[in-house]
Design a protein around this nucleic acid. Structure first.
Length: 435
RNA sequence: GCAGGGGUUCCCGAGUGGCCAAAGGGAUCAGACUGUAAAUCUGACGCGCAAGCUUCGGAGGUUCGAAUCCUCCCCCCUGCACCA
């Protein structure tokens, strides 16, 4: 019999990770009273999870560590329908084969977070398509739909703006989403004795729907807990960078870029994020915060956060690579890099491209850097050039250099005869190899 | 189907014949200041190094000139009707 940590809920609360719970104090007693099975769902809306999924994903792990059994549900079925919760507009449907491909990928990613080999509390990964896929419409309408009151559904906060807002609407399909998710909970209760669902706070309506349905269908008492939506102090959206979403898939967001993302966390957010995302103890986090307050200048918290997160998602190897690149670039000391190091940076995921010496000069620097992905348009490069914010192998380039590409990449200026490290602005780096 | 209201550059949202590549805000990028932070200030922000080119749901038309006017079409919203 696994022993459970009775302080789990309290720890979650102290970390600010509890947004809402059902059942009041009963949940705490229930969790402390024995090993329970819980689940959280992840819909395949892309071919990878992103950092917005981390809070619930890590919460599953927290529960498992505390002696409970986690189930990660991949929404092969729900992903075909689309969750309307707090979404401003109706979403476009993806084809079944795309969704099922994405579902497979998510399964792999989700699996890395929880332990599948720890006896009674071993994790499970399930796909709701397995029970929804074969269900007939009539069964669904009679067995599930009958338990939901439209009046009640319409009054949910999560769909309110879709119903009230001028210029938008909600299709029956999306409106039905809540029923599907509710069915998942009832089904997992039935199959695995799963009695707790966790999810982002935007999932509250869907979770309570599942609690009600489970009671009606199986007479079971189940619980819900929601986690906060991650917000930033400056009000901008969490998890986005200039180049878009921060993904967990290293092929989509390199460990280096991932590390840099966390390193750039604002002071106003960083201690909260340490509590949200890391497994460091609260005492440890308070210690870090205290030390940072004492010292002048740059806090250590961002580095700790970046290290912890990169190791968690990309392992020690990913962390080493990320730190290697960071050290090499931000020390602004290119001379410390050997030829081997530069080759390694390519492998480590520093943005890299090859240029042919023969074709240098065929296009302006603006075009070249845009092609390399360093800027979205030539205008941005031009702006940077005008401020001497483009630096190639330590030499700042200006507007006059735009058409002098072969000078910028002159053979005698190359590192080890072929490498050029180009910096645009303060943080964007690209490695060119001229052949 | 009928009636009414809409579709503007990433988002919100002005613009109703030339002064419009299109106000304003947000987001984003760059610079200064810093700590690869925040706040603040400055610049950029359809594409193009440039000459210039392409936009305001789509296709035509009127006009010297259209995001703005006309015709047809597509899509969204609201209400009504139909659902023998």
């Amino acid at each position: 019999m696994a022993t459970v940590d009775p302080g789990l809920l309290e720890d979650l609360q102290s970390r600010g990770l509890v947004s809402q719970t059902s059942g009041g104090d009963a949940l705490n007693d229930y969790l402390a009273g024995g090993s329970r099975t819980l689940y959280s769902g992840f819909d395949p809306t892309a071919d990878s999870l992103h950092i917005g999924h981390l809070v619930p994903l890590l919460a599953l792990k927290r529960f498992q560590r505390a002696g409970h059994k986690p189930i990660a549900l991949v929404g092969g079925a729900t992903g075909l329908v689309g969750d309307p919760s707090f979404k401003a507009q109706e979403r476009k449907l993806n084809t079944p084969d795309i969704v099922s491909g994405w579902a497979d990928k998510l399964k792999g990613q989700v699996s890395r977070f929880v332990d599948f080999d720890c006896g009674e509390t071993s994790a499970e990964v399930v796909n709701n398509l397995d029970w929804v896929g074969q269900m007939s419409v009539l069964d669904f309408l009679r067995d599930v739909g009958k338990h939901f009151a439209v009046n009640n559904m319409i009054s949910k906060e999560s769909v309110r703006q879709r119903i009230e807002r001028e210029g938008e609407g909600i299709s029956f399909t999306e409106f039905t989403y809540m029923l599907l998710q509710s069915l998942d909970f009832a089904e997992l209760y039935h199959r695995y004795d799963c009695t707790l669902q966790i999810g982002g706070s935007d999932q509250w309506g869907n979770i309570t729907g599942g609690i009600d349905l489970t009671r009606r269908l199986h007479g079971g008492q189940v619980y819900g807990l929601t986690l906060p939506l991650v917000t930033k102090a400056d009000g901008t959206k969490f998890g986005k960078t200039e180049s878009g979403t921060v993904w967990l898939d290293p092929a989509k967001t390199s460990p280096y870029a991932f590390y840099q993302f966390w390193l750039g966390t604002a002071d106003a957010d960083v201690y909260k994020f340490l509590r949200y995302f890391t497994f460091l103890s609260l005492e440890e986090i308070e210690r870090i915060e205290g030390e940072d307050r004492e010292r002048q200048g740059r806090p250590q918290a961002q580095s700790v956060l970046a290290r912890e997160m990169t190791r968690l998602i990309h392992g020690d190897g990913g962390l080493v690579a990320a730190e290697r690149i960071t050290e090499a670039l931000f020390s602004h000391d290119l001379s410390s890099l050997g030829g081997e190091d530069l080759e390694q940076l390519k492998l480590d995921g520093l943005p890299f491209s090859v240029l042919e010496r023969a074709s240098l000069g065929g296009e302006p620097l603006t075009q070249l850097l845009v092609d390399a992905g360093m800027a979205g348009s030539g205008k941005q490069v031009k702006d940077a050039l005008g401020r001497e914010a483009v630096v190639i192998n330590g030499v700042a380039r200006g507007a006059d250099d735009n058409l002098r590409v072969s000078e910028c990449f002159a053979a005698e200026a190359a590192l080890f005869g072929r490498f050029f490290i180009c910096r645009l602005g303060k943080k964007k780096y690209h490695l060119f190899e001229v052949r």
